[in-house]
């Protein structure tokens, strides 16, 4: 089993379907960030999706089918790093119960479960990564996904990484721990409620005056940035009132030596 005390040489990178298709830049930046710490990053090409969309929508058979594929992709005893708290939470906490009636896969899921890390958790808890700030003064606001916070319990690691950046001020938004309203298919099945939640979330983020929002979850970003952009269109703004990016992208840019002034 992977030991936390040893500094890993190799990791698997599980990108998630959202990063692969919608936020590939965030995935690249996460990989680069890991490589800069002297780690070989392996990207199993057969990876697709953790299966959470089907699982949380009430289609466990379909989720199992997709999850079963991912179970086969990480044969070596390396950490599996996931740039999303919610997909990491799916693999770590729900795979073992999803395969409760399939002893072989259940055992595999339980083994995998001990090796799954959310990216910021991995950077802080395993690599003890302390980013050195090469950028200029700026204020950001951090949104942490509900899965990272309540399922993975890693809501403090992203905050710690940002806190280590000398010239970055992290603003505090109102109702920080409240859900942004994404919730996968919830955003489509209950658009009124989800819409009200993201509206309030974006208002709270903007009210901090931060120049951008960062998050370790692309699902939340898709929702938050999508609403902010829609609002900009509605109100005739041409520059985004709330830009945002994955925390990996932000960290990589802040720590890039070429940014040093």
């Amino acid at each position: 089993m992977h030991s936390r005390s040893a500094y890993p040489t190799d990791v698997y990178f599980f990108a998630t379907c959202v990063v692969d298709q919608f936020f590939p830049g965030a995935g690249m930046d996460a990989i680069t960030l890991l490589e800069r710490q002297g780690i070989r990053v392996h990207f199993p090409e057969e990876q697709t999706c953790c299966g959470q969309p089907a699982y949380s929508s009430g289609f466990p058979d379909e989720a199992r089918k997709v999850a079963a594929l991912q179970l086969t992709l990480f044969p070596n005893d390396w950490p599996v790093v996931v740039p999303s708290g919610s997909c990491a939470g799916m693999m770590k906490h729900h795979y073992p119960t999803l395969f409760a009636n399939d002893p072989a896969r259940k055992a595999a899921a339980e083994k995998l479960s001990t090796r799954v890390y959310e990216l910021t958790q991995f950077l802080v808890e395993v690599l003890n990564f302390k980013p050195e700030d090469c950028g200029s003064d700026c204020t950001v606001v951090l949104h942490t996904s509900c899965s990272a916070r309540r399922e993975m319990g890693v809501h403090l690691t992203g905050r710690k990484l940002l806190g280590d950046l000398d010239k970055v001020r992290v603003a505090q938004q109102d109702h920080e721990s409240e859900c942004c309203g994404f919730g996968g298919t919830f955003s489509v099945k209950q658009p009124e409620i989800s819409g009200a939640m993201v509206e309030d979330k974006v208002k709270a983020l903007k009210a901090t005056g931060a120049e951008r929002v960062v998050s370790a979850d692309c699902g939340c970003l898709m929702n938050i940035l999508g609403h902010a952009a829609w609002k900009d269109q509605q109100e005739g703004r041409t520059t985004p009132s709330l830009p945002g990016e994955h925390i990996a992208t932000f960290l990589l840019r802040r720590t890039a030596k070429e940014n040093a002034q």
Partner: peptide, 20 residues
């Protein structure tokens, strides 16, 4: 329901696996 309060979703021109 997505676009009632959000801009439409659009995949990136290249996937992560392409960039790699």
């Amino acid at each position: 329901g997505w676009t009632s309060v959000r801009t439409p979703l659009q995949p990136a021109p290249k996937r992560l696996r392409d960039l790699i």
